[in-house]
Design a protein around this nucleic acid. Structure first.
Lengths: 193, 193
DNA sequence: ACATCCCTAGAACGAACGCTCTATTCACTA
DNA sequence: TAGTGAATAGAGCGTTCGTTCTAGGGATGT
């Protein structure tokens, strides 16, 4: 058994699209580039995604959604204290960002911003992703005893601050924004205890 | 004297570029579209910006930098209490976003993310903008008596949380993320008093 | 009147874009 | 063995991309 998993053609196309859109966004990513990197042909791309580039972008956003949800779920299950778990999440994001040479930020933000208000399908998929991530944080806070309204608001700010800090970290090529965000979010959460 | 200010050709080009990149990013904005919306010709664009699209993007980011710095400076001067000022800033951003039909988010984020790690000139301009904005918040906090290290970290999180919340507000077409961010940032600042 | 210089105007270039189309290969069932 | 449909392959469509280039307009100074 090899260490590198084998994926089918469809899966390879989605993964290549997700990675390319993560790094350079929707408009800058061409279908030829996708098919090249996925080791598929243009024919295959249109076979699996007859809706063209938009359908592919929606699928890539769903992939990024699941990807980050998994990271979030892992750290929230692993660490009991919610404040510590969020700080750990910030650390994980910073590490991933640095290890990718500051290239792999949030997999959906760039595409979401490019398409907001102009490509409804993509906007809906991005909105759903943020909602899913907030729900994970919300549940964790509820299970830790926080009241409903507090958990609701904190879930928003946790996700949004992590998003903003990751963006800032990427642009300044520094882990500091995420490290600071982790500490501040932990402090904010603890202030509601 | 008319209410609509007259701008020179160069200024019109920069403003059109800034607005288009704010709404759809760098790659999706063509020079033909820019020259059309700026009521200039392609020749004029290349006359004023011989460096082509990249130079134009850098100038547009600098424009967005000054634009948001002005908004920030205004509210920080108008409101004495720093926590209240930041909350007011979040309100202003939410209002602007809603009034534009959720189209005009942060003028530089999309372009910054598209270009991070791939177009050094643009990345540098974006990094400089974030630095300028943080400096405004940092100074306000220092003048309000916060110690250096606290002000430094808070400046990071204030800007990053506002960025993340504005992005989220844009995608979900709701003022809630910014309203919540304003309240949480005020609470975080007050927790250091 | 003429020269100078800044700016405007838009045709044209090669490359890349999203997408369509036809042909072919392959695994599997009747 | 013939038949069927999914999957692959890539040429080519019209369009737009960023960029270059040459020519003309218009105010100014002499």
């Amino acid at each position: 058994m090899s260490t590198t998993q084998e994926y089918g053609t469809r899966e390879r196309i989605v993964r290549a699209t997700s990675r390319l859109m993560q790094q350079q966004g929707f408009a800058a990513t061409g279908l030829k580039q996708i098919s090249r990197e996925a080791q598929a042909t243009l024919g295959s791309v249109y076979h699996f995604f007859p809706g063209g580039k938009t359908e592919l972008a929606v699928e890539a956003i769903r992939h990024g959604d699941r990807e980050f949800a998994e990271l979030l779920r892992d750290v929230l299950e692993r660490v009991d204290d919610p404040a510590a778990a969020i700080a750990g999440c910030a650390r994980d994001l910073a590490a991933g960002l640095r290890e990718s040479g500051w290239l792999d930020g949030c997999p959906i933000t760039t595409t979401a911003l490019e398409s907001a208000g102009r490509v409804p399908d993509i906007q809906r998929a991005a909105e759903q992703a943020f909602q899913n991530w907030r729900a994970l944080v919300h549940d964790k806070l509820r299970r830790s005893g926080f009241p409903e309204d507090v958990a609701h608001d904190l879930a928003h700010t946790v996700i949004n601050t992590l998003e903003g800090a990751e963006m800032s970290a990427q642009v300044s090529q520094s882990e500091a924004p995420l490290e600071i965000a982790g500490r501040h979010l932990a402090r904010l959460i603890d202030s509601y205890r």
